[in-house]
Amino acid sequence: MKLFTLSGVLALAATLGWSSPQCYLDGYPNLIASADESAIILKDGTRFPYHTQKPQTSWNEKIDNADLATQLEQPYDAGGIETPPPYLFSPGRLRYQPFFQALYGKDQKAIEKNLVRIDWPTIKGSVKLPVNKVGGVDKKLFLIGQEIAKLPKADRIWAEGATTYCYRVIKDTDRLSMHSYGIAIDLAPNTTQYWKDEAPSETARIGYRNTMPLSIVRIFEKHGFIWGGRWYHYDTMHFEYRPELFAPSCAGK
């Protein structure tokens, strides 16, 4: 990832056509019927406005009131990470919660009906992890585990301690964690890094730390999972299924 200022990244994104509603149609072809600048319509008929009227000027307003357009505002740049992400550049952290509830379950009971258990390889065997089956997320995560199992042990060790589904809010917020939908996984939680251990404020100036090997990261990204280590607000244990950010119409270059 090249080092840009935040304003430069967003200007470049607008110029190259990122933040297109087509990203949703490309990312979820089996779940979304149509997408344009007015609305996203799911195949079950559920309709969401692409833009809402809630204020989204400051970073805090955006992260608390993101709509579907804001959700794509920052392009996710899969690949290398030679330099830390720019200030407040955390592609994928701006989320429109009703969209994910419509896809994966409107509440805890509905989500848990969509959960299945997959085998996740470990150094000593395997564990069963609950994962959402909607859109084939379970199948993708199973394949990821099989690929990670072929890596050298020095890399594989970073896929230990895996946790997936947990219905909860994100620390210090009232927003649901992506783990609540069964589409996220944390690895090696005791030896990875989390930005709130350095500063609790969303707009604080923080450094960047990471020990997660990119060999694991690239496997996840190949299957449509973004990595929290590509965020200014780094969460290097965290991966979540976000195929819209890898769609050709939205992918970072």
Rank of each mutant, 00 (worst) to 15 (best):
M1A: 13
K2V: 10
L3P: 03
L6F: 12
S7D: 14
V9S: 10
L10F: 03
A11M: 09
L12P: 00
A13E: 04
A13D: 12
A14L: 11
G17V: 04
P21I: 05
C23I: 08
Y24T: 01
L25R: 06
D36I: 09
E37K: 12
S38N: 14
I41N: 08
T46Q: 11
F48T: 06
H51N: 14
P55I: 10
A66C: 11
D67W: 06
D67C: 10
T70E: 14
E73C: 10
Q74L: 09
Y76M: 03
D77T: 14
G80F: 15
E82P: 04
E82Y: 14
E82I: 12
P85Q: 03
P85A: 02
P86L: 04
Y87H: 07
Y96F: 14
Q97I: 15
P98T: 07
F99V: 06
F99H: 06
F100G: 07
Q101H: 13
L103Y: 05
G105F: 05
Q108C: 06
A110L: 09
L115T: 03
V116K: 08
I118N: 02
I123G: 01
G125C: 09
V131N: 02
V131G: 06
D138W: 02
I144Y: 01
G145N: 00
I148M: 07
K150V: 10
L151N: 04
P152E: 12
K153L: 15
A154R: 14
D155N: 13
R156C: 10
R156P: 07
I157L: 13
A159P: 02
G161S: 11
Y165S: 02
C166M: 02
I170S: 00
D174K: 12
D174I: 01
R175I: 11
D186F: 08
N190A: 14
G207K: 11
Y208L: 01
Y208D: 00
L214K: 13
I216S: 03
R218H: 13
E221L: 06
W227R: 00
G229I: 02
H233Q: 08
P243V: 03
L245D: 03
S249P: 09
S249E: 03
C250I: 05
G252T: 03
G252M: 07
